[in-house]
Design a binder for these strands. Structure first.
Lengths: 199, 199
DNA sequence: CCTTCTATATATAACCA
DNA sequence: TTGGTTATATATAGAAG
């Protein structure tokens, strides 16, 4: 039984949120289907749960709807739009991806040198991705610190420090946009926090 | 006043269909927003009206959610040869490549979990690539052994050992197609060969 | 994770402005 | 097109299974 208007904010109780998600998700997908059938519209819905599970509906084909969206949202970039050059582009990108993921047949690699290049590139990529992860985590920590500051302030009654805290937060965010120090910042933050260790 | 259950088929009356579209479309977008807020989910909705007008909602960023969708549904692998699906494929592959190489803006990643996924994938890929490099080197060694055998044979006159060497080479290649043992095989092969050390 | 129950909240078809 | 009004259909929170 619904006891009152529900507040438009995250449901904090895990079980309730999960139950609500399950029901509302089904409701949303049903509504999407009804809209597409009744009104003859092209509809696509994508839902990712908190745990990363995917739920979707598409009245036509998801890639086609997405592509239509892209074409609508932004006039697609440069490069040949004929099937020939696009096919070439696709083949190149797919081969490039397979090589990066080590999914090629051995004969696809021209030499051990090429494999060495790819390995080196992967290591750099891994380093990039880890740095970005550290960045994201440090941003989250700064946010939490800022929130903590606000909470503490509520008890101390000192108001001048609020703006100072926010200012620092913004500066930190800006500086993290450059890659140079992010990894260091990231790792330093997690000394003594093994469960947050950056893998 | 709703006089009865609505039939789940296209509303034939133009005015009614248009009215229904307008109301249901708003309802759908609202529901999508509620789901994302209440249940902390990543939600994206795309609606094209019959006349081609676009209506959308996305809790995060549409391109980000679309990209996440593609990473999840690997269905892109196959697909049509029309420009629409090819363009989609290109978009997906390019974004996928940027993420693997850590070249995306930080905001392109939805969470540290996603970055963790990518990092794990990169580590597996690196392992694959190293294994393949080891394979290639081992094949080259087998070839050299075979050639050495042939050269020796020219002097000794014994011919049967050549085919034996080739047979073993093929078996090794087959077993390496599965990931489980390739790394181990690769490293074992190069014990005592420091200049060929696998990076 | 799913279903069912039931009281209530929401959505919406038809109508009107 | 857009925005109310109202009677009804649907959706769903909370509890239980």
């Amino acid at each position: 039984m619904v006891r009152g208007k529900i507040q438009m904010k995250r449901i904090e109780n895990d079980a309730s949120r999960q139950m609500s998600f399950s029901k509302r998700r089904n409701g949303l997908l049903k509504k999407a289907h009804e809209l597409s059938v009744l009104c003859d519209a092209e509809v696509a819905v994508i839902v990712f749960s908190q745990r990363g599970r995917l739920y979707e509906f598409s009245s036509h084909e998801m890639p086609k709807t997405m592509d239509r969206y892209y074409r609508h949202a932004k006039q697609v970039q440069k490069g040949g739009s004929d099937t020939a050059s696009m096919r070439t582009k696709i083949e190149f990108l797919e081969q490039s991806k397979r090589k990066l993921l080590g999914q090629c047949s051995l004969s696809s690699y021209s030499s051990t040198d090429e494999l060495q290049d790819i390995a080196s590139q992967l290591e750099r990529s891994l380093s990039n991705v880890r740095a970005r992860k550290a960045q994201l985590l440090s941003e989250q920590i700064h946010e939490l610190n800022a929130k903590e500051g606000l909470l503490l302030e509520e008890h101390s009654g000192a108001k001048s420090c609020v703006q100072a805290t926010h200012k620092q937060e913004n500066e930190t965010y800006s500086s993290l946009s450059s890659n140079s120090t992010s990894e260091q910042v990231g790792t330093e933050l997690f000394i003594g926090l093994p469960e947050m260790q950056i893998v």
